[in-house]
């Protein structure tokens, strides 16, 4: 059986997989990290978003064997060892950016990549566009957008400049 070696949330794993095993199946079924969700068959909902080498990707649309040697971060890898939440998680809680919570792991992973890749600041419009790959059936997105805007200063350690679009 093929083997994949990769780092997940800082821990090295070597796992037996089939070539057709998806990265999300490796995470959920082989490593037991069920925080990453599967919400669709069409690569559209974003519930499965994780970071591969620092970039947000849909783990339902990547083969586990493609992640050989990669550094993967899932929702479980965000909080500090003492349980302190990542600022994005904290702001999702503070701004009530979730209802059923199904989309939340993917939303948070996409949101962190979005904030990290926009050190120049983010407008509300850019946040909404940046979430195009994540569907939420509960919140109407409004509080998610607020939470992301609120997380930007915490993640960059300064107030957000008025974003130039």
């Amino acid at each position: 059986m093929p083997q994949v070696s990769l780092t997940v949330n800082g821990t090295q794993h070597t796992v037996e997989v089939e070539n057709r095993t998806l990265l999300v199946e490796l995470l959920r079924e082989k490593i037991g990290l069920t925080g990453t969700h599967v919400g669709c068959d069409t690569s559209q909902c974003g519930a499965c978003v994780v970071h591969v080498d620092g970039t947000s990707v849909k783990s339902c649309t990547m083969l586990a064997v493609q992640a050989e040697g990669a550094n993967v971060t899932t929702i479980e890898g965000l909080a500090a060892a003492d349980g302190t939440l990542h600022p994005m998680q904290e702001m999702f809680r503070e701004h009530h950016a979730l209802q059923c919570g199904f989309c939340t792991p993917g939303m948070v992973m996409s949101a962190i990549d979005l904030v990290q890749s926009h050190p120049e600041g983010l407008s509300e419009h850019q946040i909404r566009e940046g979430l195009e790959g994540n569907l939420c059936r509960c919140t109407g997105y409004h509080n998610i957008v607020k939470a992301i805007a609120a997380a930007w200063p915490l993640m960059h350690g300064k107030t957000m400049p008025a974003a130039a679009e």
Binding site: G46, V49, T55, V57, K58, M62, D113, G133
Partner: peptide, 9 residues
């Protein structure tokens, strides 16, 4: 094209 995550891959 698509969304951020589609564009990343």
């Amino acid at each position: 094209i698509g969304d951020e995550q589609v564009r990343h891959r």
